[in-house]
Amino acid sequence: MRDLTARITALAPEAADALKAIAYFDELSQHGAGVRSVVRAAAALSGVPANLIDRTGGVSMRVTADGTSMPVAESVDPSWPRAVTEDGAVEIVLERSAPNEAHLDALVAERALLAIATAIGRPDEARPRDENLALRTVVDAKATPKLRHQALERLGLTPETEVCVVAVRGAAPVLAIALAEAREKAGSRRAGIGQVLPADEAPLSWKRAWSALALTSEGTRADPGDRIVLADDAGALLWLVEHLSPGAELPDDVTSVTTHAASAPWLLETLEAISTNDSVRDAAAALGLHHSTVQERSARASRLLGWDITDQRGKHRTQLALAIRRIGNAQRTNPAPQ
């Protein structure tokens, strides 16, 4: 290959550059290079930042020409050269505002995408078992640092790369490099999102993500609340999730809410709306009801529960009761992974 490249260089330098790029990515694949190494190679060969956008729930990233990892570009210019899989799930984008054929951008992007497919499996198929294993190793608090670092390399990350973990019931952990990306990957699913931490501390982000997941709701009338909860926003409630023993007897307030909600289907959504809004009128707007209807509901709910749900103390009491109720439900239906 080297002899052929040398001969072609003398006749057609641009063709030789293309062969060198092809050979470079082939060599990366043959040596089992991780995703980050491939994206870094695309950035180095093109001389501009390279973005990997993975819409399958894998790891998206942006690497500059000097090899620095950063979050994916907030806005991707449609004129930037790119290569994308047929289903649009995985894309390589090179940040060159003035495309120049001499830079071989199209070839670099296409070969990088092929090398990434080799590294993580076909992007239009289910995530390979070895990548799932790598993800679980990264978030496993019992894994040795050596094993975690090897798993991070498999995913194209370093121990210093900042990530956060997304927890979704019944799904493998998902890594993201920024909260905005984590929200995007969670989509419409119920999800808990851990803090952004160095990848070496991913187990803590995973633990916090799972705790935040216990505070989520379906977002329906029967189960009102947020479908996505960030650990950063949950505060002391995370401590409550992690210290409330499964099967423990719940406070009377929680029992009262659950009991009365069984015969008053309007109760839970009313409690959620009033406890999270400044006024009954605001709560009515959130529910799409006339304020007099919500005023009547709030008065009835206060009589049923035994506290004024509209004053500040009552709102805090309601929020705590609803949170503990969610935690108890989560412990019964989805115990935290061991």
Rank of each mutant, 00 (worst) to 15 (best):
P145C: 03
W80F: 05
E218W: 04
N277D: 06
R154A: 10
A284F: 02
E296V: 04
S263N: 12
S75L: 11
S263F: 01
A222P: 11
K20S: 14
V241R: 09
H316P: 01
R332P: 06
A167R: 05
S188E: 15
K142H: 14
A172Q: 14
K142W: 01
A212Y: 04
H103L: 12
S46L: 02
D3P: 15
D140I: 00
R55Q: 10
E218P: 09
A264T: 12
A191I: 03
A73S: 12
G121C: 05
L155N: 06
L244N: 12
A134R: 08
K146A: 15
S292Y: 04
E162P: 15
V257F: 00
L175P: 11
G67W: 01
V174C: 13
H316A: 09
P159K: 09
A264Y: 06
A65T: 10
W210M: 07
P145H: 02
G192F: 04
S263W: 02
T118L: 04
T318R: 02
T144C: 00
H316N: 11
D17W: 08
R96F: 03
L250E: 13
V138S: 10
W307T: 04
D87G: 09
G235V: 06
A115H: 04
E201D: 14
L322C: 02
D252N: 11
G170A: 07
T276Q: 10
A199E: 06
I22C: 09
D3R: 14
